[in-house]
């Protein structure tokens, strides 16, 4: 476990985190191209909770979705082709 491999490891990992952090920073800074907001596809049918677009309370949102799908199933008791 010589010293050089520790050094290369630390520099490598540090360089890559820096590369990623700079990427995030520059990405946040560059403005959206003119007249092209994000497409209407919000996150309603994407289940990934860790992508930076997901609203913070994505998990609660999924649970409420299931709850009200249950509710309208019950309230629709009378409806024929629920």
């Amino acid at each position: 476990m010589n010293f050089t491999s520790i050094l290369t490891m630390t520099l490598l990992v540090f360089g890559l985190i820096f590369f990623y952090a700079i990427g995030i920073y520059l990405n946040k800074k560059t403005p959206l191209p003119s007249g092209c907001d994000l497409p209407s596809l919000k996150c309603e049918h994407c289940t990934s909770t860790s992508c930076s677009y997901s609203e913070p309370n994505r998990v609660e949102q999924i649970k409420t979705e299931i709850k009200n799908s249950l509710k309208n199933k019950n309230s629709g008791e009378g409806a024929i082709n629920e």
């Binding site: 990992v13 985190i17 990623y20 952090a21 995030i24 920073y25 930076s52």
Partner: peptide
């Protein structure tokens, strides 16, 4: 806060 996600990934 700026480097939160990269450090979590590491």
């Amino acid at each position: 806060n700026e480097v939160r996600i990269p450090s979590f990934i590491v």
